[in-house]
């Protein structure tokens, strides 16, 4: 008896399954044809890349004050920051975009996206919201070195100049201190 039941079961369940697959043959499909459809605009609300998506980072060097909180928060150490102190009587009188005075020149701000794991800890740690995730995800390159992004806008000459200014100031201060000491 179970022999017959097994056979009827076998055919019955197969037929049920085939009924469902036939139904799906005519149901709408869900494929998103990625490079043809723009993933940012021409896509249904479900598949759209949300604004919160943690993709490539973008730094606004005008806001960043060079505090290195982000580099310290990064678990894989892929942010490299180099800063030069702004001397008191800098000829440029730099300000940040929120109007406050800039204390540190951002000589180097590199993020290596080949190492970045897009965890978002750096953006969370940033006190000024200078560093943010964008939704740009398609930026692959042929050379892995191209994934090292330089965000600092300063030219090497400018950096050298600022470094020299700082060194001069330090020297001047040291000289002044020495002078003050000898006076005493």
């Amino acid at each position: 008896m179970s022999y017959i039941k097994n056979i009827t079961d076998g055919f019955g369940t197969a037929a049920t399954g085939m009924k469902f697959t036939l139904k799906h043959l005519f149901s709408p499909n869900v494929t998103v044809q990625y490079p043809n459809t723009n993933p940012y605009t021409e896509i249904s609300a479900v598949d759209k890349i949300p604004d919160r998506a943690r993709n490539r980072l973008l730094l606004d060097p005008d806001i960043c004050n060079g505090c290195t909180s982000c580099a310290r928060a990064c678990p894989v150490d892929c942010i490299e920051i180099d800063t030069v102190k702004v001397i008191a009587n800098d000829p440029d009188q730099p300000t940040l975009s929120d109007g406050t005075k800039r204390r540190l020149w951002l000589a180097k701000y590199d993020i290596n996206f080949a190492q970045c794991c897009f965890c978002g800890l750096c953006a969370a740690a940033c006190p000024t919201e200078a560093l943010k995730h964008t939704t740009v995800f398609d930026y692959c390159t042929y050379d892995v070195n191209d994934l090292l992004y330089h965000f600092s806008t300063m030219t090497p000459e400018q950096i050298a100049e600022k470094k020299k200014l700082l060194a001069d100031e330090v020297k001047a201060k040291a000289a002044a201190a020495a002078a003050a000491k000898s006076e005493n």
């Binding site: 079961d9 369940t13 197969a14 049920t16 399954g17 469902f20 697959t21």
Partner: peptide, 13 residues
């Protein structure tokens, strides 16, 4: 659907 197509299917069982 998956139960009908897969889980209860005799071959699968």
């Amino acid at each position: 659907e998956v139960n009908n197509v897969l889980t209860y299917n005799k071959i699968f069982v």
